[in-house]
Design a protein around this nucleic acid. Structure first.
Length: 293
DNA sequence: CACTTGACCTGTCCGC
DNA sequence: TGCGGACAGGTCAAGT
């Protein structure tokens, strides 16, 4: 489930804790999570220091002082959790979802020179780590294809509308999930933003008025920011860099609220399937025009 | 071009 | 208690 707010939360934790630490050793429990040649690992990862941690869409970028960067995608069940002798002064997390590490879902361990460790856990093994020359990060296919950052200063409603207008014939939820249109939105925040703006997820882009599109853009920014402020959403697996859960789902208006009353009209939230995904909506506040499709 | 399905994986939950 | 199946969701590739 890590979407933009979850990845951003992890990024902030890593950026606070990792810079200047030197990687002493990398332990692979599942090689497919980090496809890298031993020579590259030895030359560009082991022995290098972390300069900074950034995020682009749902991807984390850890820049090393070896001219290389580690790119990490958590996909659905990835976690990046730091542990050390003193846990970097963070204390022992009380509401941690993860216990002793490593555990059975630990795929890769980065061991630092001060004895602290960064665990890449990934129950379903979909996540990946890549090693790239820092100068090549932006031309890496996955990064290159990403659309604008929804919370970026330069991303105005005009730019958002220009982007989604490229998919006139597609349902709006499918468009929001398309990372090349706008980066970072996943299933949770697509549902939340569409509810806030009162748009049915199957409505085609061409059938949405410009004011509604502006409203949708503002709703996207609102839910993403609210979630970041609350440390993201912990549905099943997600934890931050210290193993703590996020609390956004306590604020969610539709996601995982099927059967519960809509917060606008108190009718029941229903779960349907749109664009192949479980989708939570209020049928009364997110109507399709009569005879639509 | 747009949409659906399957693949990649593991764990949980539900019904029998 | 066990077992099969549906489901969870990010992305890509292949098929319709």
């Amino acid at each position: 489930m890590p979407e933009l707010p979850e990845v951003e939360t992890v990024k902030r934790g890593l950026q606070r804790l990792l810079p200047k630490r030197r990687i002493k050793k990398v332990k692979m429990n599942w090689y497919k999570s980090f496809l890298v040649k031993q020579e590259e690992l030895d030359s560009y990862v082991v022995g290098s220091r972390v300069i900074s941690v950034k995020r682009r869409g749902k991807v984390l970028i850890i820049e090393l002082d070896s001219k290389y960067s580690l790119l990490i995608h958590l996909k659905m069940t990835g976690q990046l959790v730091i542990r050390g002798e003193d846990n970097f002064g963070a204390g022992h997390p009380t509401d941690s979802l993860v216990g002793e590490l490593p555990d059975k879902s630990t795929r890769v361990i980065f061991i630092f020179d001060d004895g602290s460790r960064l665990f890449f856990n990934d129950q379903r093994k979909f996540g990946w780590i890549k090693l790239l020359l820092t100068t090549n990060v932006n031309s890496f296919d996955f990064i290159k294809k990403l659309g604008p950052e929804p919370l970026g200063d330069k991303t105005t409603s005009d730019i958002f509308i220009e982007q989604i207008n490229k998919r006139q014939n597609s349902g709006v939820k499918a468009v929001l999930l398309d990372q090349s249109i706008i980066a970072g939105i996943g299933n949770i925040y697509a549902d939340e933003a569409l509810f806030l703006s009162g748009i049915h997820p199957s409505l085609r882009i061409r059938d949405i008025s410009t004011p509604k599109k502006v409203k949708l853009f503002n709703a996207i920014r609102e839910v993403l920011q609210l979630s970041i402020d609350n440390g993201g959403s912990s549905d099943r697996n997600y934890v931050d860099a210290q193993g703590n859960k996020g609390s956004y789902l306590g604020f969610a208006k539709v996601f995982r609220r099927e059967g519960l009353p809509c917060l606008k009209c108190s009718r029941k939230i229903v779960k349907i399937r749109v664009a192949g995904r479980g989708t939570h909506i209020c049928l009364y506040d997110q109507k399709l025009p009569k005879g639509y499709k």
